[in-house]
Design a protein around this nucleic acid. Structure first.
Lengths: 207, 207
DNA sequence: AATGTTACATACACGCGTGCATGTATTTGC
DNA sequence: GCAAATACATGCACGCGTGTATGTAACATT
């Protein structure tokens, strides 16, 4: 009889797959039960492993949250990129849709949970500071030149981008606190936002 | 020597002041430490009373959260009303500012914490359902006729209001997760929002 | 193939929060 | 003023989560 395929795995394979299982279970738990209920016991129950495994790969819960946040950040980037078959985004409107697709997924509730938790726990905040500010930098018109390229660098353009960003966050929070998902008004707001874009068809940089 | 002024208080005085102390301590704790750390012990420590007092006035923590949310809701209404010296709000722009003043205060983090907590705890959600939906109704263009009166009942007007609402929530979350308060970009977004209002000077209902 | 190292599992002790079951002052009604 | 009710305070038992210490199996190195 053939040997089990899952056997004879190398150490790095075991480590990376175990870490992914734990990160996945953490995100699931954050989405389903929130930060407070996302304990080592709960995560391990979902992952189907013992606490020993978790404590072996992550020195404590905060390390697991950090890894989960990093993974979420990377995966949001991946799903946004999947939206744009072209190499680079060229249109502000497209950028908005990508941003929305990154934020509308239910995983984003995990991000919000972690944000709040970091705000409420100084030690956790210190640990997550780098990851969080990295995330913040990508949606900052000052720090992300792509935003100025797509939206324009003028005062009005930047204000418009900020409006877009805050609206996204607002709708994301709405999804996070609403069990059903699919709020209905979101598409309307998104469309209005697109319609309000300053100089939508003018492709030359007039600033 | 004169008797202490705080003595000889009637039962209803004691009850109402004690309940307010506990509600205040709860909100403080929610703002400062978040939902997870807002325990009966923590609340009583802040209020300077024992757990016996809390359990006497509220059957459990969820009852305290319900009372706190109700109070926050009422107080947000009060602070909004304080913004408008006139009896009723007559201007959409003014309405926006009032909405912002209600949402920009740091207490609103307590509301967000409770929302998330209710989403994460079915039992708490059941208990808070009435209060939460009451809050939601006041910012729903379908359920609150005042909104249609101020913004207009047309599709575009309603979409605009929804945009305003989601933006408020987004900025409120930003304040909730940012220690310092005062984000700086908020006024820019608010001003842009006001500038984007459809038919700002037309006071007759054209719908 | 033997030995060191890594990947997990198990078990114990501790702190913390909760609910309940009392106890003791105040008020209130008569 | 006296009994009943109310407003609190105190103490105990329990569950749950954490950190650590220790064990065992799987892999790597030579």
């Amino acid at each position: 009889m053939p040997r089990k395929v899952t056997k004879r795995r190398t150490q790095v394979q075991r480590t990376s797959s175990m870490r992914m299982r734990l990160i996945g279970a953490t995100i699931e738990s954050l989405v389903g039960r929130g930060y407070a209920h996302t304990t080592t016991v709960e995560v391990c129950r979902r992952a189907g492993v013992t606490r020993g495994a978790l404590l072996h790969h992550f020195e404590d819960l905060s390390a697991l949250f950090e890894a989960s946040l990093e993974w979420l950040y990377d995966d949001m980037g991946r799903s946004s990129a999947a939206d744009a078959p072209d190499a680079a985004t060229t249109d502000a409107r497209q950028f908005i849709e990508q941003m929305w697709s990154a934020v509308a997924r239910e995983d984003f509730k995990a991000v919000i949970e972690i944000w709040l938790a970091a705000r409420n726990d100084t030690a956790l905040a210190r640990r997550l500071q780098a990851a969080i500010s990295r995330l913040g930098a990508t949606v900052s018109p000052e720090l992300n030149p792509d935003i100025r390229r797509l939206f324009g660098g003028g005062a009005r353009a930047i204000s418009y981008f900020l409006l877009v960003r805050e609206t996204m966050i607002g709708m994301a929070l709405g999804r996070a606190v609403t069990p059903g998902g699919e709020l209905g008004h979101e598409r309307r707001v998104l469309d209005l936002l697109a319609a309000l874009a300053p100089s939508p068809k003018v492709s030359r940089s007039s600033v």
